[in-house]
């Protein structure tokens, strides 16, 4: 699979067997592919190498059938053995250069990052994509502090390779993540833990597409900005301004903070974000 086609994905699915007791990984992942999953990662931190290899072989076959890229968490050797499309690394795993040496120039290398410094380092070291998260607290990675949507915004501004927002993302909060600047999202438990993974994928894809369609132009503090934010609150988060004590004026009318979430934006709106500076 060429890199260009690979870059098109927006919905990334990762296996999490413990989320669907009684159903096989292959069955659940097939459901996600029917629902439109655009890239699949096998993540198995507890099984033996042999078990991972068996799952990898099965998922390789399945993802080929659905023509989506297949990534394996850790195990560059299994990537080669099963002809998977790439490997996904954590910050504590082998360096990107080492994975690149093992896998050659054509396979994908992705890496999880938790701050902008790690993201820029990954980009410099030749990663093909990065994970940005956990955006929200998640049971998939207990004990890891959530990076919040402000890191998504930073990534959107400064990272040039594809980045995937991940961690605690559900249908209930995906709009905030998209508003913060993400184009690609990954949801683990909300998808594979769903009783209907296919329907859940379709719901996520609809939200991703709605986000893309609703791009509008607003004037923010005198500067023209393109945004997919639906509401004032989403725009503030997208601009990374949510930690400031702000007052907002939309088309000359003050919007009280309590109303940010329900105040919708439309193209041509003029919005002022003001705060207080030293003065006499």
């Amino acid at each position: 699979m060429g890199r260009e086609a690979w870059n098109d994905f927006r919905l990334y699915v990762i296996t999490a067997e413990s989320n669907h007791p009684g159903k096989s990984v292959v069955d659940v992942i097939e459901q996600t592919l029917i629902g439109g999953a655009q890239i699949v990662q096998l993540r198995n931190k507890t099984g033996s190498r042999d078990e991972v290899l068996e799952q990898a072989k099965a998922l390789r076959e399945l993802t080929r059938k659905y023509k989506v890229p297949f990534i394996i968490n850790d195990y560059p050797d299994i990537v080669l053995e099963t002809d998977a499309d790439g490997v996904h690394l954590g910050q504590e795993d082998m360096p990107i250069a080492e994975a690149r040496r093992l896998l050659g120039p054509y396979r994908m290398i992705g890496i999880s990052t938790h701050n902008l410094q790690q993201a820029l380092a990954a980009e410099r070291d030749g990663a093909d994509y990065i994970g940005v998260g956990p955006v929200f607290p998640t049971d998939t990675k207990p004990g890891r502090a959530a990076v919040t949507t402000s890191y998504v915004t930073e990534a959107a501004r400064h990272v040039t390779i594809p980045f995937v927002a991940i961690g605690g993302i559900t249908l209930g909060n995906v709009d905030l993540v998209l508003a913060a600047g993400a184009n690609r999202i990954c949801s683990v438990s909300a998808i594979v833990g769903s009783h209907d993974p296919a329907a859940m994928c379709r719901s996520f894809l609809r939200r991703l597409e709605a986000g893309a369609e609703e791009s509008k132009t607003v004037v923010m503090n005198g500067r023209e900005e393109h945004t997919r934010a639906r509401t004032v609150e989403q725009l503030v988060i997208q601009a990374g301004q949510q930690n400031k004590k702000l007052v907002i004026e939309l088309n000359g009318i003050i919007v009280q903070r309590a109303l940010w979430a329900e105040t919708e934006l439309k193209s041509g709106d003029s919005i002022e974000l003001v705060h207080f500076v030293g003065g006499g």
Binding site: N221, G222, E272, L273, V274, H275, F276, G279
Partner: peptide
């Protein structure tokens, strides 16, 4: 105390308001 009202700096995510 006196202070002024200005547009926020959209290039920075840090809270640089004098009130903090």
């Amino acid at each position: 105390i006196t202070f002024a009202v200005r547009r926020v700096n959209l290039e920075s995510v840090e809270d640089d308001s004098v009130l903090q």
